[in-house]
Simulated scan of single mutants.
Amino acid sequence: MKILKEFRDFLMKGNMIDIAIAIIIGGAFQRVIESLVKDVISPVIGLFIAQPDFSNLLIGPVKIGSFIITLISFLLTGLVIFLFVVKTSKKLEEFRGKRGLEIDPKESVETKEVEILRAILEELKKK
């Protein structure tokens, strides 16, 4: 029973829920990118090669058209992730640094209570 409790605690951690949400949104996002490539970009490319649906384009026995569509989807997904996740997180880090929100681990912020407790401890050490 202990292992079930540990497993439940693991699943209920905030990070695990965030990851699950990210996976669901990522799957939906991937479908949007695939539709963009299939329904918008591919027909535009097809105009230039005089073949509206080039997903069945063959070079010998190789289905090169399908590969090109998949490659474009991959590149667009990578580009969007780079722009919206990587660049945004770097900007956020820069913003936090400029606003002084970073905490220096060498600096310790002591409350009044901690100062009083330290003084009491010093007095007790003297006795």
Rank of each mutant, 00 (worst) to 15 (best):
M1D: 10
K2A: 13
K2R: 12
I3A: 13
L4F: 10
K5Q: 12
K5L: 13
E6K: 14
D9C: 04
F10K: 07
L11V: 09
L11N: 11
K13V: 03
N15Q: 12
N15D: 13
M16N: 14
I17L: 10
D18Q: 13
I19M: 13
I23C: 09
I24G: 03
I24S: 03
I25Q: 04
I25G: 02
G26W: 01
G26V: 04
G26C: 05
G27K: 02
A28L: 12
A28C: 11
F29R: 00
Q30G: 05
R31M: 06
R31C: 05
R31W: 02
E34D: 15
S35K: 04
K38C: 02
V40Q: 05
V40K: 07
P43N: 07
V44T: 09
F48T: 15
Q51L: 14
Q51E: 14
Q51C: 07
S55W: 01
S55F: 02
S55V: 06
N56A: 10
L58K: 15
L58G: 02
L58Y: 14
I59T: 11
I59E: 09
P61N: 14
V62W: 07
K63E: 07
I64P: 00
I64H: 01
G65I: 01
G65C: 03
I69P: 00
I69M: 06
I72S: 04
I72C: 09
S73R: 00
F74R: 12
F74V: 13
L75C: 09
L76P: 00
G78L: 07
L79R: 06
L79W: 05
L79E: 06
L79Y: 10
L79T: 14
F82T: 15
F82V: 10
L83C: 13
F84R: 10
V85L: 04
V86P: 01
S89P: 01
S89L: 07
S89W: 01
K90I: 12
K90F: 09
K91Q: 08
L92H: 08
L92D: 10
E93N: 12
E93H: 07
F95Y: 14
R96M: 15
G97C: 03
K98H: 11
G100V: 08
G100S: 08
E102H: 11
I103S: 12
D104F: 05
P105H: 08
K106L: 12
V109H: 04
E110P: 00
E110S: 11
E110T: 11
K112F: 10
E113N: 11
L117H: 02
R118Q: 04
L124R: 13
K125V: 11
K126N: 10
K127E: 09
